[in-house]
Design a protein around this nucleic acid. Sequence first.
DNA 1: AACAGGCTAATGTCATGACAAACTGACATA
DNA 2: TATGTCAGTTTGTCATGACATTAGCCTGTT
Lengths: 245, 245
Amino acid sequence: MPLDLDIALDRSSPVPLYHQVASAFERAIREGALPPETKLENEIALAQRYSLSRPTMRQAMDQLVRDGLVVRRRGVGTQVVGPPVRRNLKLSSLYNDLQEEGAEPKTTVLSLENVTADEGICKKLGLSAGTTVQHLLRLRRVDGRPLALMENWIPPEVAELTEEVLEHDGLYNVLRKSGVDFRMAYQTVGAAAADADQAEQLAVEKGSPLVLMERTALDSRGSAVECGRHLYRADRYSFDITLVN
Amino acid sequence: MPLDLDIALDRSSPVPLYHQVASAFERAIREGALPPETKLENEIALAQRYSLSRPTMRQAMDQLVRDGLVVRRRGVGTQVVGPPVRRNLKLSSLYNDLQEEGAEPKTTVLSLENVTADEGICKKLGLSAGTTVQHLLRLRRVDGRPLALMENWIPPEVAELTEEVLEHDGLYNVLRKSGVDFRMAYQTVGAAAADADQAEQLAVEKGSPLVLMERTALDSRGSAVECGRHLYRADRYSFDITLVN
DNA sequence: AACAGGCTAATGTCATGACAAACTGACATA
DNA sequence: TATGTCAGTTTGTCATGACATTAGCCTGTT
């Protein structure tokens, strides 16, 4: 039951202690060193074991709870949760997610131009009507087969995009390199039927079901930096979400 | 800038102080008393104003951040975020969400029987192969028009379900009343085409796009209490999610 | 006028201490 | 046997204090 994880804590590191602890536990759980149903030591003992204060250890545990890796019960303890330890939806691009899974995403820029944003886009981006924004249309392939058709709108003051750069990296990575620090995103996920154009681009039949995702991303100042409307082949993509009370 | 919210805190209430504070701010933001872009007072001043400690006030603010209502920046302050203050995905039933929106959901139980669970269901519920579970198929209507076709599997030891009860309330409410306390859920959202049966039930054409949601719900002990596969009319439903870094 | 430096303000991190509330299990009692 | 009670364990909540880190502004210098 002691289950010493031999965590190497670095107090001089810029990454906070609670994050170091949480990451170590997360890795241990995902790798199976802490199998499902395992009961962890109590907070106080854990804090002492790693020479931390109880609030710091709690903060680490809270993160594990929010990530859906453990469950806690007052008076009982903390348990590693059952097997379905899937990946949770993160505020990153599709590109990064695919790379983490070992795939090799390839992007084709179908169109990149400045347009005057319509009312809907302006509202989502918090701009006054008639503003000019960059309109981006891309097709993403994995293993040579099309996966997603992605349409995005980016205000010019956020970053100046070029086809060249976008062909070799995900939009979020490109924007991050331009100094954007994403903080939040509103997302809606639904479904739609492929029209003739979309069907051709995604190599499916017209009318096929597609996963429809619309998103508005905000930076740390709370202002919108990007909004998009993405269509995914339903047979090749879906969104994973972990909900916690 | 002081922006006193006149929050009535009840220290003898069983609901924690940080939750009382967070709820009050959330209501104020949603009702427009704190419009977007508003800069809140700093934590220390807020804590003093309501006679709380700083950690408690921070806990309240953290909740607002996770709910996507405010953004914080070190060295700067806390700001109410832009207008798209939508509802976030919660661990509750469709039924409750619809009721909150003022709709009148009606449920028809199409089938309720005990079946031996197949391999996939057993794995999701963490049961050994060949176990008997309750299989439930329901159709949900709003305004008389079909919205969702819901298929669920529930282990018998969780609760004994009856058609009678399920026709008048959502599954989650029914289970909660049986003593289940939901803590977590894994969810995947995608799309699928309606087959002949589904099309008829949902009053759409065969092949129409549907939103496909699969979910496994866990209780506070980390064991699965329910798993389900739901199909929604794409023109009438989608999932809203708020992501935070 | 432009840049460097330092000051201020605000959130982020961490420690210590205390009490409350809930679950478990053992024990006593009817 | 069944039920109620009590003690022990563990997480939940709250308070106080301190220092670190970052952003933004002001100021002084070049």
